[in-house]
């Protein structure tokens, strides 16, 4: 693997999508500012808006950097350069994941931090952590779909599945006995159920990315 080439390709994608990336910062900050209202409803609204910004930017960036490369016929230019499918795939995954991970880490840490504050419902911490990692998984799914299918339709289906999945899984997780029983308590309780769900989600990340590499390696046509 030529890491210098991977770095160049990542910087290329960031440069070409700099307005989308930079545009998400004020949107994220505006969503965060809502917390300053100081009410519980404002906190919820802020988290929902932040999630929308993160997932929206993640999905849009994944679409633009993977699907549009084929749609706008810039893939031929890229693949004419001395790079392999491994470097191309690694660069696309990293370019998208890093942009997603920066706000995701800040917001997830922020949300968990707020829940750590005295007087907050500490029991919500495991569920919040589970939902934060769920967002990471769905973003990986969208990136994988974009790279593997290279089609707008395939990526749109992945985005729809992710949006739907996050709600359905959120509902399911919130109603699992090992999670719901402690969710509204004042103590943090990492039940075996919560830990299994969290570990399963974490395991999904390398699984999805590994699957992407595997399927890319099986492709015979890159144009």
């Amino acid at each position: 693997m030529n890491y210098a080439m991977v770095r160049r390709l990542i910087l290329k994608d960031w440069y070409l999508n700099r307005w989308l990336i930079l545009g998400s910062v004020p949107a994220g900050l505006a969503a965060l500012a809502i917390i300053l209202i100081g009410k519980f409803v404002a906190l919820l609204l802020s988290i929902i808006l932040l999630c929308m910004v993160i997932i929206g930017v993640g999905a849009q960036l994944a679409t633009v950097t993977t699907v549009n490369e084929r749609k706008e016929q810039t893939l031929a230019f890229m693949m004419s350069l001395p790079l392999s499918w491994r470097e191309y795939t690694a660069a696309k995954i990293l370019a998208n994941l890093i942009i997603f991970l920066i706000p995701w880490l800040i917001i997830s840490a922020g949300a968990l931090g707020v829940l750590w504050l005295p007087g907050a419902t500490h029991g919500l911490i495991p569920f919040t952590a589970i939902m934060a990692v769920e967002m990471l998984v769905t973003t990986c799914l969208i990136i994988a779909a974009g790279l593997i299918t290279e089609s707008q339709a395939g990526t749109t289906v992945a985005i729809l599945c992710s949006s739907l999945g996050i709600n359905i899984l959120g509902f399911v997780f919130a109603h699992l006995r090992g999670i719901s029983a402690y969710m509204w308590g004042q103590q943090v309780h990492w039940s075996p159920t919560a830990l299994i769900v969290l570990l399963a989600e974490f395991a999904m990340v390398p699984l999805l990315l590994g699957l992407t590499f595997f399927i890319q390696s099986r492709k015979t046509d890159f144009l």
Binding site: N2, Y15, L16, E72, Q73, T74, A76, F77, S80, L81, P82, L83, S84
Partner: peptide
């Protein structure tokens, strides 16, 4: 192909450059 493409120049009718970037970039 990586080693070979170091020494190949390729232009195709259906190849496009990035519209939002300049030629200098």
């Amino acid at each position: 192909q990586v080693a070979a493409k170091q020494k190949i120049g390729f232009v195709s009718e259906d190849m496009r450059l990035y519209g939002a970037a300049t030629l200098a970039w």
